[in-house]
Nucleic acid binder design. Structure first.
Lengths: 162, 162
DNA sequence: GATGAAACATTTGCAAT
DNA sequence: ATTGCAAATGTTTCATC
């Protein structure tokens, strides 16, 4: 974690490291070293440097939503009533405080915000819609798209250039 | 990784472990043990069990998109022409093969698919739209929503019940 | 970037509850 | 069925080249 300098230069070895850690964050440093063809010491120094530069933001475990009773994913388009700066900030803050809202994006175009919401079932979603979203002042309209099947989900960013 | 049994029962200790690993996948087992109030041996056995049951799906490093030159995120709604099973499967397969497509969901309603696409800039996005999306047979319509600001992004699922 | 050594963590068997 | 202990193995980390 540090300042977002416009470009930490990543050499091919750094990219290899990032690519592996994006797939398996718990790989042992010794094994990572093997895979990239270095010894553990310089490998670890590179990983620490990438962490400090903020290129590696964090390490997380991804759970299976079905197995923790979060079977339903819904994408929600939200438009706000009066477009004051404060109204937008308040809305974003509310979304940050709700654990069922995994992602919230401010957008260009007709849609003001896009949400990704993850709940146990339709009943829980309806409660979210009525008790949470509709209860926020300034919410003019919402449009819910129910996800039927996750065809692809990855957190891995391509590492072509930059 | 194993069969998706409908419900591995998670006791409060399991939930504590999952909650910590969702925040910090690289925590040392000894420290994890400290935080949940067990000794390292049973802690590790629980983690391994959660991995084998598939509750923990994988461990990943999350990178800063800006620092790896992926500054632009776009949400795309796609509708397909002829709704044959094969057409849908082909589309999904194409999306899986494209590294700039991070997520792809089959949806209910007007939208057939929702995509989350991550590219370096508008130029690259335009190329994706023209050379990739529009080039897939059966794509009737696309609607792109450009993300201006990420207000919230988490991969952590709430662990209330189940 | 490599080596070697010390500190530390992971992992296993076994006894206890 | 799950924990704690302790010993063996493996990993991380740092000084040095």
């Amino acid at each position: 974690m540090s300042n977002s300098r416009p470009f930490p230069d990543l050499d091919p070895t750094d990219r290899q490291i990032l690519s592996i850690l994006q797939r398996d964050a718990r790989i042992a440093n010794t094994e990572l070293a093997d895979e990239i063809g270095l010894t553990p010491a310089p490998t670890l120094r590179r990983v620490r440097r990438l962490e400090e530069e903020g290129v590696i933001h964090r390490y997380v475990a991804l759970l299976d939503p079905k197995l923790v009773n979060r079977d339903l994913m819904v994408m929600v388009r939200v438009t706000l009533d009066k477009q004051t700066k404060q109204g937008f900030q308040d809305f974003a803050e509310q979304m940050r405080s709700r654990p069922e809202v995994l992602e919230c994006y401010l957008c260009l175009g007709d849609t003001d915000y896009l949400l990704k919401v993850c709940v146990p079932n339709l009943d829980a979603y309806q409660r979210f819609l009525v008790d949470v979203l509709a209860a926020i002042p300034g919410v003019r309209n919402t449009d819910s798209t129910i996800v039927v099947k996750q065809e692809k989900y990855t957190t891995s960013l391509p590492l072509d250039e930059g």
